[in-house]
Design a protein around this nucleic acid. Structure first.
Lengths: 205, 205
DNA sequence: ATAAAAATTTTCCGATACGAAAATATTTCC
DNA sequence: GGAAATATTTTCGTATCGGAAAATTTTTAT
């Protein structure tokens, strides 16, 4: 079975990368050397019991050992990435309601997605159905004035310098108020495929 | 053994709460009825193989089935929180280098920490040692001009509307350039205890 | 190159997981 | 209450897991 084999390879890799011998891991985990060897070679489909002990010995969660869960470097491994976004940098996506500009898009694997947007729509009927997606978002008005329409709250007006935090799973729409198109900066916790011309085709807000 | 028993109880609870019979779960997971029964009664220490199939049948990750990992509401259960931050809202913290204003602080358990700040320091020597903390941060200049000093990069200047994304584990400092104090909006992925008068005592940037 | 040491794989066998079917318990419906 | 239906547990045989020790392979040292 492919899963068993995958686990074997994974376990071996994790053990080797920590420079542990079979017997070292055996004493850390309380699983016999021969058993670990067989697991690594896919000659055995281990009981949960053994897998939990191995995960414990390797100081991993079972999800991490199995490969379901990311082995997270965020906390342990200090990164040192940096990327400024100049005035006209960024990937621009133009939609009915917004003109998005993805900031710092060259920096991948970010935990936040910062977006600069011009808000073109100025009324809910013009906007269409509320948007919804995973995660949370924070928005601050850089210029102009906007109204925030949501599924469960009365509309809220925000002017320059004001901001809002909301759960993106709740339907929401930002529309400009007044004559000028408002500018905002929006930071999302999860990327989303945005609809352009009814087709989802861009990593987006 | 307590672990086996715990898994049994957990599995039974999860199955019942979904109103599944043993045979229903059996056909969902491909594990025999008798085996599931024995696992639930702690009469058996199942192989990883079976546990993975059960997790799959219950539409859970193995971590969630085992109880190591939270059964997470973030993704499945849409929240609907919302909080606007008005011009003079927010918790203000005054330090040597910055005057912080925590936005939307009443909304707890956020995945991002938005902060409005006035940058008081205007030179590195005035600033003191670089700051560092966990997570990542995104900063956009609302007014004025700043210089970004970091541990590993040459200083970077940003003026109004420009922004930067960086790993907060890298030493960093923002200082105002020119005569006026710059205003910025900074969003962090992790709260940090900030030092005031040399004592860490506030949840902060 | 050879011996010694260390690491890994294989062998062997007792213990146990697993599934089919039988036995028992529980629920449903007159 | 009793019969039928449904759900769960138990039984039992086979397959396989798991550990100790033997056999093999790899590494280290001289």
């Amino acid at each position: 079975m492919t899963t068993a084999h995958a686990l074997g390879a994974r376990l071996r890799h994790l053990r080797k990368s920590r420079k542990l011998t079979l017997s070292a891991l055996a004493s850390l985990s309380g699983v016999a050397v021969s058993t670990i060897s067989k697991i690594e070679n896919g000659a055995l489909s281990p009981t949960l019991d053994k897998v939990l002990r191995l995960a414990d010995g390797l100081d991993l969660s079972i999800g991490q050992l199995i490969g379901e869960e990311q082995i997270d470097d965020h906390k342990s491994q200090p990164n040192s990435r940096l990327l400024p976004a100049r005035a006209d940098d960024g990937i621009v996506i133009d939609t009915q309601n917004y003109e998005y500009r993805y900031l710092c898009a060259e920096l991948t694997n970010k935990r936040m997605v910062p977006i600069h947007a011009r808000i073109k729509a100025s009324g809910l009927q013009e906007f269409g159905p509320l948007e919804r997606h995973g995660g949370e978002e924070f928005l601050i008005v850089l210029d102009g004035e906007i109204a925030v329409h949501t599924e469960f709250y009365a509309p809220i007006r925000l002017s320059r310098g004001e901001s809002i935090y909301l759960d993106s799973t709740m339907g929401h729409a930002y529309v400009s108020v007044g004559d000028q198109e408002a500018e905002v900066c929006c930071i999302c916790t999860e990327p989303l495929r945005v609809t352009v011309d009814g087709q989802r085709d861009h990593d987006s807000i």
